[in-house]
């Protein structure tokens, strides 16, 4: 668990009304990856971070923030 990193994936998903599975399918990862990233138990690579940001069409800094 990364104590320095926070993310807004859950909020963004609610805004876009999509499930973890839909987001996972869209960016080509497992639902477990999304689930663990969202809850902060797993820190994703830059590639996944950029893919998530690209999916929501926002800069990566608006998805992941340093605490």
């Amino acid at each position: 668990m990364n104590e320095d990193l926070d993310n807004h994936i859950h909020k963004l998903r609610l805004q876009h009304k999509i499930s973890q599975q839909e987001l996972a399918d869209a960016i080509g990862v497992s639902r477990k990856t999304i689930s663990t990233v969202e809850t902060g138990r797993f820190t994703p690579s830059v590639v996944i971070a950029l893919r998530i940001a690209a999916y929501f069409a926002i800069p990566v800094e608006q998805v992941f923030v340093l605490k």
Partner: peptide
């Protein structure tokens, strides 16, 4: 590790929306 995640998902799974509840 794989089971732990499944367990957590089961515990927090919102069946209506089909997603984990935080």
């Amino acid at each position: 590790n794989l089971r732990e995640e499944e367990h957590r998902e089961e515990e927090h799974f919102d069946e209506e929306r089909g997603e984990e509840v935080i």
